[in-house]
Amino acid sequence: MLDKVIFYVFGGIAVVSAALVVTRRNAVHSAVFLITALLATAGIFLQLRAEFLFVVQIILYVGGIMVLFVFVIMLVNLDVALQQIQFSRQKWVALLVTLALAGQVGAMLWWAGQPGKKTLPLPVSVAAPAEKLPANAEAVAHSLFGPYLLPFEIASLLLLVAMIGAVVMAKKKV
């Protein structure tokens, strides 16, 4: 019961603030709602007992990336930005992508509802009590450095390449 309440509260906050992110004209207001949406997502992670994901979501997305977002927004002249067109005109592409995504989500929900296929009960309630679960950070570490070592290293290599690329682009003469 408590799990359900927490899930729907955080989920509702996330959905509403995500909608507000794209509809606000003022970029700073959009950023504030984006922070709210990210925090609500973190709350859902916590409800799922994924403490490590919850904290990483807050440290990286909210505490790191969003600070830089807000920093950049403040350097932009908002009065000029307010005069510009808010939405881009690529309606058909956007419609296509939205339909594809909606189809995916719908298929997943339908799949979960089938009898005998208990893959995705919604909202997810944790069957085992908290003490029985393995420690979260350790579980993440074991899967990252165990079966998923190669994908993990490839992803970090990709990030390194992106970082070097950003430095090269920012600094014309290295």
Binding site: V28, V32, I35, E51, F52, F54, V55, V56, I58, I59, V62, G63, M66, V67, V70, F71, M74, A130, E131, A135, N136, A137
Partner: peptide, 22 residues
């Protein structure tokens, strides 16, 4: 019983910067 206590403290307290910036 929070398993990532020290990260929780550091992460949440770093949110205070938004108060200053905003």
């Amino acid at each position: 019983d929070i398993n990532v206590g020290i990260l929780f403290v550091v992460g949440i307290s770093s949110l205070g910067i938004f108060g200053i910036v905003l």
